[in-house]
Structure formats: structure tokens, C-alpha cells
Nucleic acid binder design. Sequence first.
DNA 1: GTGAAAGCGCTAACAA
DNA 2: TTGTTAGCGCTTTCAC
Lengths: 339, 339
Amino acid sequence: MAATLHDVANLAGVSIKTVSNVVNDYPHVKESTRTRVRQAIEELNYQPNLSARSLRSGRSGVIGLVLPELSLSYFGELADAVIAEAEKHGLVVLIEKTGADRDREIAVLTSPRMQLTDGLIFSPLGMGQADARHFEVDFPVVLLGERIFGGPVDHVTMRNVEAAQAATELLLKAGRRRIALVGAHVDEDVGSAALRTRGYEQALTAAGIEVDPSLVRYTTLWHRSNGAAAIRDLLSDGVEFDAVFGLNDALALGSMRALQEAGLRIPDDVSVVGFDDIDEAQYTLPSLSTINPGREQIAALAVELLLARIRDGGGRPSEPREVLVDFEVVVRESAVPAD
Amino acid sequence: MAATLHDVANLAGVSIKTVSNVVNDYPHVKESTRTRVRQAIEELNYQPNLSARSLRSGRSGVIGLVLPELSLSYFGELADAVIAEAEKHGLVVLIEKTGADRDREIAVLTSPRMQLTDGLIFSPLGMGQADARHFEVDFPVVLLGERIFGGPVDHVTMRNVEAAQAATELLLKAGRRRIALVGAHVDEDVGSAALRTRGYEQALTAAGIEVDPSLVRYTTLWHRSNGAAAIRDLLSDGVEFDAVFGLNDALALGSMRALQEAGLRIPDDVSVVGFDDIDEAQYTLPSLSTINPGREQIAALAVELLLARIRDGGGRPSEPREVLVDFEVVVRESAVPAD
DNA sequence: GTGAAAGCGCTAACAA
DNA sequence: TTGTTAGCGCTTTCAC
């Protein structure tokens, strides 16, 4: 059986409280007592029982990370970043996946499954602006993504509009004028799709180009297959185009595949830009020009904000914070400025 | 403040034990009492405190999953499968990543960080056969992968040798004779690399082809970049070859990129086969022929075995089980049988 | 600087 | 069928 505080106290000939003080690095302990206790801990290979500590203190040292799906590269890489960041703070990460399903996302917020976390980093893909009230919960939450703004919790998000605008401008600088957009969503005014579409439109408008609806292709999901299908449709519709902006890298990569199948050369015939800068984007042929949306920074900020909320637990919560992260245009082979 | 068993008991006018019985679906409770308690639970929005339950019962309902890295597609997809499987059993998953570092892998087994898990599913990439003793711990562990055999814990693994043999045979059936192997490891006799290399050799030998050492290329990591680099070396060494077997899909995909850069056509000039069947393999150009190693089944078995060990907690542990999972050859465009 | 004792919310003997 | 009670191992007042 594992040793308890009591055992250590007995062996060291002190009270249980003193041991607790040593374990928690309490300052007011005589040096000689401290070493004696340390020895006893060593000897018994004592390890604090986290359940007991958590019951007593109300903290578990576990944070929850709620994501659509780990096998989507973007989220896999985000999870890695969050775990690494959490570890720096001595926290451990419990991951729940929702499959981008709104009901499941809401369920996570109310179910007892995440009870033993001290707080949640939450990346919804099914919930929308109208669901903001679901975040009025009595534990700390940091919201990620661009589906809900002005909610009652801290929010870390990327500069979608500006970044999409920059991506589109890269294609314009490559001398392209007929830029297809792959991955738009019907009737949405929030969410990555809507914001990035807005950036695309702004860039075109600023360049004096009218947005041609036949170039805007809609997909429900953002997987490779959807990108490939969108391009096949575009081609079979006989729409002329000289560039593709995929609203994420998977769409862009799927698009590349379909373009190449059709015998089109990238970037000679068609330039392609993606969004996310997943690892894979470096190793395709041609390599994919894309937007690095600041994933690492998002993870770091999310953990820090959450930790701050957890620490302040007691007091009246301060205003929710909205934090924007810097992005970067990554120029590779699939789209290069003409100059 | 959250409601406790006491509050519910008071409201329902019963004892705390009765409430506990209802919450835990204990059979011997009068129907009328049960409904009364249910109402009280509803009214107070009572949710059991998991820390307390865990302290008392010794179970947390959390299982740990220890992986090298979530951003490697194979592990991202494995994590998804484990989480889905765990959920079926009402369990939640805590993920720790080791970065394939031996010391960190060993640390996870001893540190208190995973204390509040009921058991671990462990996928090492740094530890080797000699580290088997580190698994002699007093909590349930299910080992994944092919680095440690005959250890003191249950083990779920794929048929690496047979699957690699089948992959190589696919290339032979495509009429290839000069098959390059990408991703071998120096001086290893366990681990995916060694086992898959053995399958490759067996297939060649069975076909009466001698293994040409100049066709066997070594890489430390199994990322896309390593595959690409290996092929560039192969080409600059002037070694003739008509097929590539990448020991995982990332290597195969990186290889494809380098081959295409060099103006070689796939599968016309060079056939390529990978291993893992990650999602991406369907959407590259050409799509990648590969081995599906039974990831879903591995996840399901791992969770089941772990759960069984957790349940038997008390008794003397039975012999560790070694479970092999079925694989499947997935023929796509990059390598097709000649007939 | 150290000790005694209460109790976090729950489960599980045992009693009734 | 239901109630009483004793802790699980820890943190935390409050004394000393």
C-alpha cells in the first residue's frame, strides 16, 4: 500500500501537518525538521494522493481540452502545443472530443465528465453565436476559435479576416485575377468560413476586382476530399480560374490533388494558397503556400488565461478578455509573388 | 455552491445512503423513494463530486494515454480511436506526450502526474526491450507498439513482419524487383523498423531475390522530410530502383515528393507502398497504397484489456496477455498488382 | 515553528 | 429497504 502523510509523520517523528508543510514548500519549517521529513519521504517513497488533495483543495491540476477531432492535423498540432504549455505549469491535460457536434459540445459543458478538471479550453465547431449563454458556467473556460464572440468567457482567436485578406493578396501579387474560394459556408456570418471569406472579398474589392459568385465554392466539411470535390465541380462547370484559396490546408491540398489529376500545373496554370500551416504543407509537391495563424501563441495564451482564472477562483470575475494573435504569410512553391 | 448528497437527502427526506444508492443504480431501492430522490437531484441539479468519489473508491474513471506526439497522424488517429472507445465505457482520457524520449517515457511511469488515472495505455518509442522492468508498477498498464515484448503487462501489437511482407509482395506483384526500403534503423532488433525490415527481407528471399544493402536506407525519424531526404540520397548515389517501401506513410509520402521532384512518375517509373493508412494517404496524387494495421481494433482491445485489469484490481494478477491484431493491404494508385 | 483536530463529499460495512 | 457511521488522505484553521 502506498505511504500516506501519516506514515511519513510517524517515521520522521513529527506531526502530519509538518509533513504537509514540507511537501507544499511552506516557508516556516526549521531546516533540520525539513531534512528529516525529506528523508522519511524518500525512504517511504511517499507520493501525495491527488484525489485527496483535490477533494480538500478543490483543485485537481488537470485542465480539459475540448476539440472536434485529433486526427484533423490542425487540432492534433494544437493539442500538442497545449499539452506542452500545460506541462510548463505543472498541469496535465484531459482531452474530450466532440466530433464538431453541437449537442455534444454543449453536453461537455454540463456533464460531470469534466468535473475533475480545474477549467476548460474549448474549441467549438458546431455551436454558434446564439449558444454563447452555454458558457455561463461556474468553472473557468477559455474559448478558442471564431464561432462565438463577446461571450462571457476569455477568448483567444486568430486574425481571420486580415489573414485571409493577406492570403488572397499573395495570389493577386502572383498576378492572378480569377481566384476560386474553396470551403465557403452557406448562410453563416460567424465562424472561420465566414470571416475568411470576408477577407477574400475585401482583398478583391481593394484590388478593384468584382467577386464572382461562380468562383465561390461551398463545402460542409473541410477535409481533403471536400477540396478535391470542389475543384472537380469547378472544372466540370467550365468556370475559368487561375488560382485557388483553400480556407484550410486540407482543402487546399485536396484541391491540388484534383488540379493535378486534371493535368493542371501548380503554380504555372493555377496558384494555390491554404490556411493553417500544418506540418504536411512543407512536404507536398509543390509545397503549399499558406497562413501560419499563430497556433503556438494561441496555446500559450489559452493556458495562461485559464490559469489566471483558476488562480483568481474566489473573487468576482473580471471582464472577459478577447485576445487576438498574430499571423504570418508563409510563401512556398504553390503560390509565389510575381516580382 | 454545488449541492452535495446531504442536500439531496434533506430535500428528499431520506438518508444520504439512500441517495447514494439511487445515484449508483443500486437495485434494492423502493420505486417511490427512487423517484422522490430523482426529483430532488433534478431540482438541486446535483452532480456527484468526482474527487470525493475517487478518494473513497480508489477509482477516478480516467485512463491515461501516453503517446510520442499527437501531431504525428498515426498517433492522432490512434488517440481519437482510444477516446471514442473509452467513452463507450464511460471513461475519460488524460493524454501525456513524451516526444519519443526514453527518459520522459520512464518518468511518466513513476511520476505522480498520472496518479489520478486508473490505468495507462502506453505507446513507447524511446524505451527498448531492456526497459521492460519499468513496467512493473502497481497500476494497470496496457502496452502498445513493438518495442517491448514479453513484458509484465498486457500488450496489443500489430503483425509487423507479416504486414511488411505483404506490402513488399504487393510491389513484387507489380513486377518490381529493385525495391528500396526507406526508414530502416541501425542495430535494432525490436521496434517497428526492425520487424518491418524483416518482413521486407522475407518477401524478397521467398521470391528468390537477394537483399541489396544499397537499397536499404536508414533514417532516425519517420517524418516526411526523412523520406524525401532518403530518396534524394538514393538518387544521388546513383542506385537503380523501381519501387519504394516506406516503413510508414509519412516516409512514403516524403519519398513520393522527392521522386516527383526528380521527374519520376508514380507508379509508372517507381511504385510506392507505405504503412499505417493515415487519412491523408487517400488524397495524395497518386493516392498511396499502404497497410491498414488495424488501428481501430488496437484501440478497442487496449481499452478493453485495461478495463478488465482495472476491474480485477484486487486479486492476484493473471498472466500478461499478448494480443495480435489483423492487418489489411490497401491497394491504391501508387502501387498496383500487374495482373 | 509545530501540533491537534475538523471536515472536504463520498462509499461501504454494518445495523435496524 | 433504509439509516448510521467510519473513514479515504489531505489541507487548514486555530492553538500552543
